[in-house]
């Protein structure tokens, strides 16, 4: 089972233009900031947002191809969509919610209710069938929404920010829970989220979406080790630079340069972890190949570390211990020497 999607769609001024390939058994997370087009992607796949171009096929069957005038209506697509706030029908009981899709597809009331009851049992809510959705906790509502979709045995399962409606304190628990339920599902699974932790904890593969375009795709470790956008670099908490490399010397797009020990020539990304950035009151001697002077623009205590935002050529973020800050007598606005070893500059092609 595979999904092949080339999606061109417009919502007002916003344009979604991306390609996506998913295979069965894979759990892919589309990660991006709010407004990146994540929900539009799901709506387009579900047929709720018409494509202006491109083509979507699921297991070889064309779901939508505007050029050929093909558009399978939403209700006929073998796709299950779990909405961000679950959208359980408030006027129906929990059991009727789960049975809704079965009934809509022509199953009689009695077998539909029996089947729905089995699914409620599977998500551990067999006792809650008569309740109204409004009386459920967030986690229970999520499981009902999942059961409602899984009961239809869709070929493609879409989840829109499945954890967003949950309490932060209970998220970890429910994430494990959700992962367990998703593992039992054999179709293609796609989840969109703006929460990197959620994406990395759940997904086999990440797709980074920003302003309607795919910036990067790969396993969580690939993506975090080789960020290709400011968004990902910020998420991971590393310094990301872009520039032109020639024999280990990288001329940065934003001004300044960095020296690395190895790496490709041409357009490159360079990543420097804040913990490898050293700070000095006076110009240091010795090994570091990258030494430049900057000004401490901001100091932030984060956990047991202080993040120091430094402006200079280039600007960079350093992470040092509170003890080091005291020894340096560092304060906002102070001039300081910045040193990064060439071995700590991680270079890869752009």
């Amino acid at each position: 089972m595979t999904l092949e999607a080339r999606i061109l769609a417009r919502v007002g001024d916003f344009e979604l233009d991306m390609e996506l390939g998913l295979s069965a058994g894979e759990l892919v997370a589309v990660l991006g900031p709010n407004g990146a087009g994540k929900t539009s992607l799901l709506r387009a796949l579900a047929g709720l947002l018409p494509l202006s171009g491109g083509r979507v096929t699921l297991d070889g069957a064309v779901l939508e191809d505007p050029a050929q005038g093909i558009r399978v209506p939403t209700e006929q697509r073998p796709i299950g969509l779990v909405f961000q706030d679950y959208l359980l029908f408030p006027h129906l009981s929990v059991l009727e919610n789960v049975a809704f899709g079965l009934r809509a597809r022509g199953m009689a009331r009695t077998p539909a209710n029996r089947e729905a009851g089995r699914w409620l049992d599977r998500v551990g809510l067999s006792a809650e069938g008569e309740r109204r959705p409004a009386s459920l906790s967030g986690g229970q509502a999520q499981r009902v929404a999942l059961a409602r979709v899984l009961a239809l045995n869709p070929a493609l399962l879409l989840l829109d920010e499945p954890m967003a409606a949950l309490d932060a304190s209970t998220r970890a628990e429910f994430r494990r829970d959700l992962r367990r339920h998703l593992e039992s599902f054999r179709g293609v699974r796609l989840l969109v989220t703006h929460d990197p932790l959620e994406a990395m904890a759940m997904a086999d593969r990440l797709v980074i979406l920003e302003e309607g375009r795919v910036l990067q795709s790969g396993s969580p470790s690939e993506v975090t080790q080789h960020p290709r956008s400011r968004y990902v670099a910020d998420l991971v908490g590393v310094n990301l630079f872009r520039g032109r490399a020639s024999n280990g010397l990288i001329t940065l797009a934003g001004g300044g340069s960095l020296t690395a020990v190895a790496g490709p020539d041409g357009d490159v990304f360079a990543v420097v972890h804040p913990r490898t950035v050293a700070l000095y009151r006076t110009r240091p001697d010795g090994t570091p190949r990258n030494i430049w002077e900057g000004r401490a623009a901001d100091l932030d205590l984060e956990g047991d570390r202080v993040r120091v935002r430094l402006s200079g050529l280039p600007s960079i973020v350093a992470e040092v211990t509170p003890v080091a800050v005291r020894e340096l007598g560092l304060d906002r606005g102070d001039r300081v020497w910045i040193a990064v070893k060439a071995t700590e500059v991680n270079v890869y092609p752009a």
Partner: peptide, 15 residues
Amino acid sequence: MDTRFEDAARTLGAS
């Protein structure tokens, strides 16, 4: 009314 309930129903196969 929140028309996304209608969307949800359609993704569940309702005409």
